[in-house]
């Protein structure tokens, strides 16, 4: 703690020495700033944080923090994060990655972490494109979008990430963007503090392959603050209504926050462990289990 400082951790304490490979101007630079700030606000020391990602430009993010990082394989950040959380429930577990990583190859996992209410914060850097592999169609790309794998325009409807997680019953669903860094930091902080699975979709422009309309200027033009709109984040149906406008409007802030968060999977595990521990045989006698009575 610095002599004149007031809080335990400063954003810079979460910044590592690795230099990002991102293209200058990439939205992910702001996202990592938002994460530094949110982590400083939450105040957990870096070594008690596990930060998992998949593969993609955005998935490089754990390396730029001082937390324990795990830049895993494409689409599998969530299963790994889930294992970390189960192995050590005391850790703060963050998962992050791209729209492709999360909603294409990894899309199948989200539903199950939500069902289990894993206490993990999942941040998707949604740029509507595959950045790392040079600009292919992503699951959130608009229909008609021309890319190198949709030369004559895409023929499929995009996934709506917000509606997707809301429909599966996620307890915390929010959206942020570099157009409002303060809001992003606050939103991520709130997501981390939420006890249970929390999802933050960050509209993070790709300056190299992204479309004009999805750059900062375009996003600013369609952005609207949920708080300013008077949206009640306890109202799940209203949240779903608003989430329908994904792609046309960029609502920023918390769509839904379960006012009565149910127990997390970790809580249930702990409960079960406590309940059953009295029945444990001493380990050295584990084989006694096979004695036929």
């Amino acid at each position: 703690m610095s002599a004149t400082g007031t809080c335990e951790f400063q954003p810079k304490d979460y910044k590592s020495d690795l230099k990002p490979i991102w293209c200058p101007g990439c939205g992910d630079f702001s996202v990592v700033q938002g994460i530094y700030r949110a982590l400083a606000a939450v105040g957990r020391p870096p070594h008690e944080i596990a930060f998992v990602s998949g593969i993609g430009c955005s998935s490089r993010i754990p390396g730029y923090t001082t937390a324990y990082g795990f830049n895993s394989v494409h689409g599998r950040a969530l299963p790994i994060a889930q294992g970390i959380k189960l192995a050590n429930p005391d850790l703060l577990v963050l998962a992050a990655g791209g729209d492709g990583d999360g909603f294409s190859i990894g899309g199948g996992h989200i539903a199950h972490l939500i069902r289990r209410n894993m206490d993990i914060t999942y941040i998707v850097m949604d740029n509507q494109i595959y950045g790392l592999t040079k600009g292919q169609l992503s699951p959130t790309s608009q229909k008609g979008r021309i890319t190198c794998t949709s030369r004559y325009g895409s023929m499929e409807e995009p996934v709506n990430p917000l509606l997707y997680v809301l429909a599966y019953g996620a307890g915390f669903v929010a959206q942020a963007s570099p157009t409002d860094l303060a809001g992003m930091a606050a939103t991520i902080e709130e997501a981390i503090r939420y006890p249970g699975f929390a999802f933050v979709n960050v509209q993070s422009p790709c300056v190299t392959y992204g479309e004009e309309a999805q750059q900062i200027k375009g996003l600013k033009a369609i952005s609207e603050s949920l708080t300013a709109m008077g949206h009640n984040p306890a109202d799940r149906l209203a949240a779903m209504d608003l989430a329908q406008q994904y792609g046309e409007k960029m609502h920023l802030g918390v769509f839904y926050r379960n006012p009565e968060p149910p127990p997390t999977y970790g809580d249930l595990v702990k409960e079960r462990q406590t309940m059953l521990s009295k029945d444990a045989l001493p380990k050295e006698r584990i084989l006694d289990l096979f004695i036929k009575k």
Partner: peptide, 23 residues
Amino acid sequence: APRSVTRAMIFDIEAPDYDAARA
């Protein structure tokens, strides 16, 4: 004398936005 404002309170006041840079 101890400081009571922190860096966490300010967001891009005079710092150029990240979006301003390009390769």
